[in-house]
Amino acid sequence: MNATVIKVGMADFKIATTLNTIRTSGLGSCVGIVIYDDRKLIAGMAHIMLPTSGLNKQEKINVAKYADTAIPALIQRLLQNGASRFTLKAKIAGGAQMFSFSTGNDLMRIGPRNVDAVKEKLEEMRIPLVAEDVGGKSGRTIEFDPNSQLLQIRTVNKGTIHI
């Protein structure tokens, strides 16, 4: 029985335990990253918008916005909440190409770049990526249940899948 759904906003990350499921809605070119400890049944989810914090033009950085800063921050938060470093696993979804602009603007092809950046960082941090549903042209809403460790992915036209 899941008491509540924890909602993760855009450029945001949060933690859930067995009492909750954790969800982020309307992933387009953004990527939703779930990192979880399958023994302690604790999970974190991040909703990143951009691949690297090198794109940051602000003085103060929002770590949840970038793949390369959100993943370490999420792992640290999980460890603080009792997860163990060596049983962490990851599932990801998102990185779609919502519009097919032919312009040379790199930002408009951000979906695939986000996915690459996430995978690179996960590999660097030695977190096994056990499942993914990325790319395509559809927006996704994802919800992770720390009990079953299943990631539910809903799109508007292709129904719901679990990975």
Partner: peptide, 26 residues
């Protein structure tokens, strides 16, 4: 630019337009 159409989730569509802006603010 030439307009593009999409029938999909509001959040997925909006975030796409926010990308250039997201580099300089929240």
């Amino acid at each position: 630019s030439v307009p593009e159409v999409s029938v999909d989730m509001a959040g997925a569509i909006l975030s796409y337009g926010l990308l250039p802006l997201s580099q300089v603010g929240d």
